[in-house]
């Protein structure tokens, strides 16, 4: 029994040897780039002393994690991180799919290319530069809004960088502005891959555009949507550092609404330079993401096994 099992496996491997061979460079790369460093998670549980080496340093259990949970701010940063990233996932996906579908509708090839280039533009600049652009709009002294837009509506200038209440919207808008183009290109590639026959058949049946989108486009790009969403969920505890740090200029009064785990950790470690604590933060973020993804993948695979990631 066991023997025939072996023979079968060997046969299978022989049949698929070319495919396995193809995967070798990628797998080797992942092992070097991703799996070997994973050993480093032990740093999170150590009090690193270089004289003793990383392995020789003392174990200190969860002490490096304490600062993430101990303070009054722990709740705020966790809440902010989840709420922002959660709403980004939903808004980005909806917006990007909408734009991709519409882009697919544009008849003129030239116009389609032009629009596509333009909406991808914001993705090309770094968040630091975005921070400067936002400053040029919002600066209380000579920003575009205070100088030109608000007076048009007869409104008083606003000290944007000292008023927390506006920032959840500002950050969301900036994020959407920057990320939509990128996601949209990915969805567009999937939409282009859809066989035209489906649409032709639907048109003959007299289905409306809206109906076609709902029953052809969206279901057919569902695998891509699922991947993108699951990936985003896996990173829900990580935030775009530039967005939350550089764009609000690290302004103190805004901190209750702009502080996320990454910015908190960064500020705390600026003065300490402690790799144990930064590893701990990273591990915590990965763990939560991992659990959430396993959960959502489980739910997805319950509904449709094909769409699940693994």
């Amino acid at each position: 029994m066991a023997k025939t099992g072996w023979v079968q496996t060997l046969k299978k491997i022989k049949r698929y040897r070319a495919l396995f061979l193809m995967m070798v460079p990628g797998i080797v790369y992942l092992i070097i780039n991703n799996y070997m460093p994973m050993f480093g998670v032990i740093i999170a549980f150590k009090d690193i002393n270089y004289a003793q080496g990383i392995l020789g340093s003392d174990w200190i259990g969860f002490k490096n994690f304490e600062y993430l949970f101990k303070t009054d701010d722990a709740f705020t940063i966790t809440r902010n991180t989840i709420l922002y990233n959660g709403s980004f996932i939903i808004l980005n996906t909806v917006m990007a799919i909408g734009v991709a579908i519409m882009l697919n509708e544009v008849r003129s090839k030239f116009a389609a290319r032009f629009y596509q280039s333009v909406i991808l533009l914001p993705f090309l600049i770094s968040m630091v530069v975005v921070g400067y652009l936002v400053l040029s709009m919002l600066s209380s002294e000579n920003g575009y809004l205070n100088m030109n837009i608000l007076p048009m509506f007869g409104m008083e200038p606003i000290s944007w960088y000292f008023e927390p209440k506006y920032w959840p919207y500002i950050l969301t808008i900036v994020q959407l502005w920057k990320a939509t183009g990128y996601l949209c290109v990915i969805f567009l590639a999937s939409i282009i891959g859809i066989d035209n026959e489906y649409y032709e058949a639907a048109t003959i049946d007299g289905a409306s555009k809206w109906h076609q989108i709902r029953s052809i486009t969206v279901p057919l790009i569902m695998p891509t949507i699922t991947i993108m969403t699951l990936l985003a969920i896996g990173r829900i505890f990580y935030s775009d550092f530039g967005l939350f740090y550089q764009v609000p200029l690290n302004s103190g009064p805004l901190q209750p609404v702009t502080d996320v785990i990454d910015t908190y950790v960064y500020r705390g470690l600026m003065t300490l330079g402690d790799i144990g604590m930064s590893s701990a933060a990273g591990l915590y973020q990965s763990m939560v993401g991992f659990i959430l993804v396993l959960l959502s993948n489980y739910i997805v695979s319950k509904r449709n096994k094909e769409n699940a990631l693994f």
Partner: peptide, 30 residues
Amino acid sequence: PLSRNDLPMRRSLSFLVFFTLLFNGGLVPT
């Protein structure tokens, strides 16, 4: 190969790839 339904150990291999998205050893070990 990962897209081929008939590949042996496909799910495990996919997981191997996917896992790298969620966990990393952090900057210092890398």
